[in-house]
Simulated scan of single mutants.
Amino acid sequence: MQLKMFETTSELDRYAAQLFADALKEKPASTLGLATGSTPVGIYEKMIELYQQGDISFKYATTFNLDEYVGLTADHEQSYARFMNRHLFAHIDLPAGQTHLPQGTADDLAAECANYDRMLEERAVDIQLLGLGHNGHIGFNEPDRELQSGTHIVELEQATREANARFFASIDDVPTQAITMGVGSILKAESILLVVKGSDKAGILKQALQGPITTECPASLLQTHKNVTVLVDREAGRLL
């Protein structure tokens, strides 16, 4: 596991975007694992800049997102499909047919989970971007006595819903369930990029990287992966 600390989030974002650029230059048909939330926004901005400068192309890439809310249509303002279009897809040359998100409005959610896993089996993720939840979740894999390996439906913890309430009119509007790639699927990626920002994440980051490996802190399972790079700003890394 490699740890890199940055003085500014801008430097961090630029470095992370360049890692994706390097992957695409080495393998234009790379499969990219993408994340949502506030953490990757700056990274996507830098990726767009690299594309606009002609440094990279996404034309042959394929993307898989970690998760989606259950019950939100793709055109809902707070859906992750809408998020990805707003912050990345609409600004690069990635064909729409090469983007994948789990469908939280599928009639048969169990079948949707199985279908997503089949697609992931057919095309392994080359580089997976992750953020870190305040309770140690990655994707929407919440702390539990045991975790599901594959894509599944998860009941969101109150703390997770409260953390995401800032994006909605009120917490009552935050969905109670999500469909998420499982930790087992995440760990199958060839390389993993964990990005953590802010002093409020310092404690859980220390627990994830230096504490015991436990499903009660899903991110701690990243300690078992052979190729993880952790990028943090100075505030997030203050306890390391």
Rank of each mutant, 00 (worst) to 15 (best):
N65T: 11
L72Q: 06
L88V: 09
E122V: 04
Q158G: 01
P143I: 13
Y60L: 14
I204D: 00
G71W: 08
F58T: 11
T62L: 14
I179F: 11
S38A: 14
E155Y: 12
D233E: 10
A81C: 06
L24S: 02
S170L: 02
G182S: 07
M181G: 09
N141T: 10
Y15K: 01
G203R: 07
T229K: 11
C217S: 04
E121W: 02
D117A: 12
G182C: 08
C113L: 02
K59P: 00
C113W: 01
G198I: 05
A110I: 14
L66C: 06
N135Y: 05
I213L: 08
P102K: 11
V195C: 13
G54R: 12
A17W: 03
L72W: 02
A110R: 14
G150A: 07
T151F: 03
A61C: 13
L231A: 05
L66Y: 02
L205T: 09
A35M: 06
E146T: 14
D200L: 04
A29Y: 06
G150Q: 12
P175R: 05
S57A: 11
G71S: 09
M119H: 10
A81P: 00
A96E: 11
M84A: 03
H91A: 13
K226A: 14
N227V: 01
Q18Y: 11
K206R: 15
P95S: 03
P143Y: 08
A21L: 02
G54Y: 12
I92T: 03
L193P: 08
P143N: 11
